[in-house]
Computed example of a mutant assay.
Amino acid sequence: MTVKPDITWADFEKIDIRCGTIIAVNDFEKARNPSYQLEIDFGDLGILKSSAQITTLYEKEDLVGKQILAVVNFPKKQIANFFSECLVLGVYGEDKKDVTLISPSLPVKNGMQLG
């Protein structure tokens, strides 16, 4: 396994990782790889959309109400006809197709920041 180069504390402080609750999930049929379109409630930050390749381990109905962690300060990224506004965080499986979402172990208020 290759370790990425060191970053500074200032680099890390630039990343805004927040907790949010998935409130809607739709199939993303125009994506190149099987994906869902997610709507995530980040409390005072509002509702942000994301595209996530998490279809192998998660069914749509199991995702609604699930709290996840996401980077919320990336610029919007266009994927086909969809604009992803945040990056949902997960851990890759062996083949990089199975992604396990990162979630808090206890419920937290939407919009709370990783610290």
Rank of each mutant, 00 (worst) to 15 (best):
L89V: 10
Q78L: 14
S50N: 08
A80C: 09
S103K: 09
I47V: 15
D98A: 12
E94F: 09
I68P: 02
G111A: 06
K30N: 14
V64K: 02
P75N: 13
S51K: 12
K66D: 03
E29L: 14
T56V: 13
E59V: 06
A31L: 11
K77E: 09
F83H: 06
I23P: 02
A80K: 07
K30Y: 12
G93Y: 07
E59D: 06
D44F: 04
C19G: 08
G90P: 12
N81G: 11
R32V: 09
G20L: 01
I22E: 00
L69V: 06
D27P: 08
G20V: 04
E29P: 07
I54G: 02
Q37N: 13
Y92P: 15
M112I: 13
S103V: 13
N110Q: 08
Q67V: 11
G65S: 00
E39A: 07
K30C: 06
K30D: 12
N26A: 14
V91Y: 06
L87F: 11
C19A: 08
G43F: 03
Y92G: 05
E59P: 08
D62P: 10
N73K: 10
S105Y: 07
G20M: 01
L57F: 06
F83I: 11
I23G: 01
S103M: 15
K109N: 09
